[in-house]
Design a protein around this nucleic acid. Structure first.
Lengths: 135, 135
DNA sequence: TTTTATATGAAATCTATTATCGTTACATGC
DNA sequence: GCATGTAACGATAATAGATTTCATATAAAA
C-alpha cells in the first residue's frame, strides 16, 4: 500500500502521486525521465499533466522516495529508492544503465576523504562506456 | 604559445579560440561554465558571441583540450586539460573543490566495466562532504 | 593578392524544467 | 455524509541552458 508512504512523507494522497509511485514500483526498468513517466501514464489512460509529474518527482526527491541522477544526457533521471546504495554504468551509445556496488571502491573513497580532511555525506560514481551490445 | 595547440587540434587560429584558451589558462579557478567564460570575455572587452563560446568549448572538448563535467546543477562545467586525470571532492557547505587520483579506484573501475561487458570511455567520480574548515 | 573554405555573431530555435493561475479535489470538522 | 478551507491540479506561459541557422567576415592556401 503506497498511500502510507505518501502520508508518512507528509504528502496528500492524490491520484497523480499514487499513479506515479505505482508506475515506478511496477516498472521493469529502474531509471526514468520525467517525460518517460508522463508518457507511460498517458498510455495507461491516466490524465496527468507534465508539470505535475515534475512537481511530484521533486516532492518525492525531498521525501527521499526517489533519487535524481544527472547523467550526461542533460535530462534528469529518476530512480525509486528501494534499499541499497549502488553506482552506475551508462552506455554512451544506447543509454542503457547498469548498476554495481564495489566494497573496495567504497572503502577507498572513505580513505581519500579522510586524508583530505573531508567528512563524506554522499558520493556519485558514473562509469561511461559502450555496453556489450553496442561494441 | 597556444596557437600551436589549436593547429595541432586541426582548428583554425581565430581570435575567439585564442582568447578562450588564454582565459582558461590564466584564470585562477579551474572550473567554468560557458556563461562564466562569456561574461569574463565581455568584461575584458572582447567581442565574442555566446554561441561561439559554446561552439568553441565543444570543439575543445573533441580535441581533448578541455573536459566537460556534469555536476548536480545540471549545467555543464568546463575544465582545461592540463596534465592528468583526476576526480573531485566537493564541499557541500562552502563549495570548495579538491582533486584526487587513486590508482586502486581506477583499476577497480576497469575490472567492474569488464565484468559487465562495458568498454570504458570515461568516468566521473565526485565525493560530497564537508571539508576540514566547515566541519 | 585572390580565392575558398571555415568560423563568426546575432537571432531564432529547441529542450528541459519551473512558475503562474484559475479550477478541482482531498481530508478534516460538523 | 456534507460543507469548507487548503493544498494540489492541469494548461499554458515563462525561463534557462544550449544548439542551430544564416548572412557576413576572416584565416590560410593557392
Amino acid at each position: 500500500m503506497e498511500s502510507k508512504d505518501l502520508k508518512k512523507a507528509g504528502l496528500k494522497v492524490t491520484m497523480p502521486r499514487v499513479k506515479i509511485l505505482e508506475m515506478l514500483e511496477n516498472s521493469n526498468t529502474r531509471h526514468h525521465t520525467a517525460e518517460d513517466i508522463y508518457k507511460a501514464l498517458l498510455d495507461m489512460g491516466e490524465e496527468v499533466g507534465l508539470a505535475t509529474v515534475y512537481r511530484v518527482l521533486t516532492q518525492f526527491e525531498s521525501a527521499s522516495l526517489v533519487t535524481r541522477h544527472h547523467f550526461e544526457s542533460g535530462q534528469a533521471v529518476f530512480e525509486l529508492n528501494q534499499g541499497n546504495h549502488h553506482d552506475h554504468l551508462v552506455c554512451v551509445k544506447c543509454g542503457r544503465v547498469d548498476e554495481f556496488y564495489d566494497e573496495i571502491i567504497e572503502q577507498q573513497q572513505m580513505k581519500i576523504a579522510k586524508e583530505k580532511g573531508y567528512a563524506i555525506t554522499d558520493h556519485n560514481l558514473i562509469i561511461y562506456g559502450t555496453c556489450a551490445k553496442c561494441t
